[in-house]
Design a protein around this nucleic acid. Structure first.
Lengths: 75, 75
DNA sequence: AAAAAATGTAATATATATTTTACTTTATAT
DNA sequence: ATATAAAGTAAAATATATATTACATTTTTT
């Protein structure tokens, strides 16, 4: 049935957070102002957060939005 | 009571769309896959869209996310 | 190896983004 | 000046992001 959904949203929040090695999932969540569970779901790419949350993640991880989130077109 | 809300999310979707002069509000909405009303509210900065919608707007307006959306810290 | 901290995950509840329908006002074209 | 298209807006319904609580599993620390 090819391309029921043309594309997906991906992110590397977890990757970047761990690379920087400073923050725990819970700490980042607290800084951003969401629950740890929400941050967990975002990192697991299980749903699309709001731009507000994304901007705050981007700010605290010190990495541009465009590098954190992108559209993954399925080929 | 200063800073009930520490910051707000702002965007220049409407500005960029009009600058480019190619797209109507309704056309952009259709490209992005939301209703015209939703696009209208986004342009009016009345709520925070999801990253999915933002990425699609960014794509069709051909301008980076970071330039389209930002945190407005109240001083 | 045991204890403690961090992470994954699930169910239910709540808040809010988005849709639908519809109408009014403003801008553009004839 | 009139007609037509575009934009602003509003109420009610729906979908989904986020919160809350709770527990299981994995990783890190001692």
């Amino acid at each position: 049935m090819r391309h029921l959904k043309e594309f997906t949203i991906k992110n590397k929040v977890k990757l970047v957070r761990i690379e920087k090695g400073r923050l725990t999932q819970g700490e980042l969540a607290k800084l951003v102002g969401v629950t740890r569970q929400t941050m967990n779901l975002i990192e697991a790419q299980k749903y699309n957060p709001t731009i507000r949350v994304c901007l705050l993640i981007s700010k605290h991880l010190e990495i541009p939005l465009d590098e954190l989130f992108w559209i993954d077109e399925n080929h």
